Structure formats: structure tokens, C-alpha cells
Simulated scan of single mutants.
Amino acid sequence: MISISSLTKNFGQTAVLRGIDLRIDAGELVALLGPSGSGKTTLLKIIAGLEWPDAGALKVNGQDWLTLPAQKRRIGFVFQHYALFPHMTVRDNIAFGLTVRPRAERPGKSVIAAKVDDLLGLLQIPHLADRFPAQLSGGQRQRVALGRALAIEPAVLLLDEPFGALDAAIRRDLRRWLREVHQKTGSTTLFVTHDQEEAFELADRVVVMGEGRIEQIGSADQIHDRPSTPFVARFMGAVVELPVTLRAGRVEAPGLDARGLERRAMADGPAQLFLRPDAIALEPDAASPWTLAHKTSTGAMIRATLRHETSREIPVDLPRHSAPDLAIGSAYRLRPLSGAVFSLEGTAPTEAPRPVVSLKEKRT
């Protein structure tokens, strides 16, 4: 089990991690999802012992890992660009972490060979055992890199954009395969990605990060349907933002039929409605301030642009075979199928800040 408390990290004047609190259970597969610069890779490197935080706590199975150097942490780390030894065969690459252990801890040659054979079978690459990295495809190299990380039976397996250098079809195949490997090994695994589909398909839980903070933790459905902050809503593709009014828990605005949205336990007043372009239906309404300014077809979808009487424009994506017959210049009412609402009045209550112990103080 990994326990992270109040972890902070600055690079010069730039705050990269701003008080991270996270618990990962044994055997869990968790994704750190977020855009570039959100702090996810820095957090991974701190767990690996490749970076050091300015403050906070990191414990694995109750042990303080901030007192341990990287080589003592039993970490399996898989990078985006494989980092295989080019002069070693697949078999020797996988065995490497075992063969370089101190003599007192090193398994015998027959034990290492049996371990490597087991992993070659698990990775579905026994036929590649005697090849060199230059003779492998990108997907095969990534399997070897994972095998090398698993060989040492790591306490924690860390994956940093593991499929980022591969094309889309291979990535999909490897995602399914990695999920199967995880279920067979039961490793506690944390992986970094900026790909939403990858995170949601692979992970037991997804941690959405933005600007050094954890914005939301949950399943794919929870994050997709109920983003907890405007940042998460935008990151999930809710690029349509409409000023609305909340009244008795209902969202109201001219040209908007929001009766399909559930009531919100929020105070009356101004709010912002976040919608994905594919979560909006259109209905003819001569009184609406929204008119159709442009439309194109991708074959499967109608891409429409609606223009407000104030000249503001928004995108709407409709399935072509079920879309209404849209006419340029005609007025339409927006009917949200799903959306997120955030009040503009006041701020959400926050927990009292936890006392942060400086690591410098901790060592004295």
C-alpha cells in the first residue's frame, strides 16, 4: 500500500506539486492522468527515488521511503522509450535486475533462468528470447522492458507513458495485454498518461491532475459524468461553457431546455454550465437566440456551429443518421443530454490545511 501525504515539490520558483494526498491499495492499478506540466511524472519520479520532495510524506507498506535511496526501494520502472541494453539479448535484458543483485541476495543461475522463462511465457515472447533489441518491434521492446521490471518482483511497478512511442493500433493491443498481466501478477501499479482512453480502459482508479494538484479521483464513469471541478470538465472535453442561472436546483437560460439535467443541490444564483459538443441535442425554436451558422458532415457525425445573437459561437456534434434536418440561419433550442454545473458565487468549502513537516526538519 502506498500512502502519500502533503507532498510538495518546487523547481526554483515554480510549484510543481502543491500538496498531494493519495492512497493506493496493494494490488491496485492507478492511472495519473493530466496534461503536460500537471506534475504527474514528477510524482512518479519521487516515488521511484529519482526526485526528492520539498515536504510531505511517502510510505509504502508502512515504511518511510523518503529515508531510502532508489536502489533500496524495489521499484520496477518502465519508461516510454524502453531503455533496453542493446548489446544484451531479450533473455539477458529481463534477467539483468536479478544478476546485478549483491551476491548474498542474488538467486542461483537456475532460479534466474526459470524466472526468465516464466516471464517470457507471461509476456508471450518466448520465441524472441535470443534476439537483440534492434531486431524487435516497438511493441515487443515494450514487453521486454516490462519483463525486466517484473523480474525483480517489485514492491511497486511504475510506468511512465509506457505506450506513448507506439502507434494507435499497437497501443490498444498492449493495453488489453497489460491489464491481463496485471491481473496475473497482482502488482501494485501506478502509470502516467495524458491519454484519457488509455487511463480509463486500464486503471482501477484514475487520478486527474492539473497544475500540481489532484483535481479528482474516481472511475471512468464518475469522472466522465460528474467532473468535480471546471478543470476536469474542460479536460474531459466539455468545451462548451454557457452562463446560466440556478433556480430551485434547475439550470435556466434563454434558448436552453435543461429539463433533462438532474436537479442540483446548489444555491440559487449565477452559474456556469459545461457541456461536451456531443452531449447537446437541437430542437427548432423560432424564439431561441441560437441560430445555425455552419454545418459539415464527417460521414458519421454532423459538425454544427451555433451562433448566439451576441455573435458567440459553440460547436455541436450530432449523429448524422438521427440528426434533425438542420437549416442554415434557422433558430434552435439547445437541449443538454448531460453536463456539469459550477456556481459562480463564493467558493467551495475546503478542508483545513494539514501541518506540513519540512524534510529538512525531519532529518534533524
Rank of each mutant, 00 (worst) to 15 (best):
Ile302Pro: 02
Thr229Met: 05
Ser338His: 13
Ile125Trp: 02
Ala267Cys: 10
Ile47Lys: 04
Ile2Glu: 07
Asn61Leu: 11
Gly147Asn: 09
Ile217Gly: 03
Phe231Met: 09
His224Pro: 00
Ala267Asp: 12
Glu351Ile: 09
Ile217Pro: 05
Arg143Met: 01
Asp54Trp: 05
Ile328Lys: 05
Ala331Pro: 02
Arg234Gln: 07
Asp92Thr: 01
Leu273Phe: 13
Ala199Arg: 06
Ser137Asp: 06
Leu261Val: 05
Pro270Gly: 06
Val208Gln: 04
Leu159Lys: 01
Leu122Ile: 10
Phe163Thr: 01
Ile24Trp: 03
Val239Arg: 05
Arg176Asp: 12
Met88Asp: 11
Leu43Lys: 05
Ser228Phe: 04
Asp117Val: 01
Thr189Pro: 08
Ile125Ser: 08
Ala248Gly: 10
Thr305Ala: 05
Ala104Arg: 15
Gly299Ile: 11
Asn61Asp: 15
Arg234Ser: 11
Gln272Gly: 00
Leu159Cys: 10
Lys115Ala: 06
Pro355Lys: 08
Arg320Trp: 02
Arg312Thr: 15
Glu252Leu: 15
Leu29Met: 15
Arg148Asn: 06
Ile47Tyr: 07
Leu158Ala: 08
Phe132Thr: 09
Ala165Tyr: 10
Pro270Asn: 01
Gly138Met: 02
Phe11Tyr: 15
Glu345Gln: 14
Glu28Ser: 11
Arg74Gln: 13
Gly269Thr: 03
Ile217Thr: 14
Arg73Glu: 13
Gly164Phe: 01
Pro284Gly: 11
Thr42Ser: 15
Phe200Gly: 11
Phe191Trp: 07
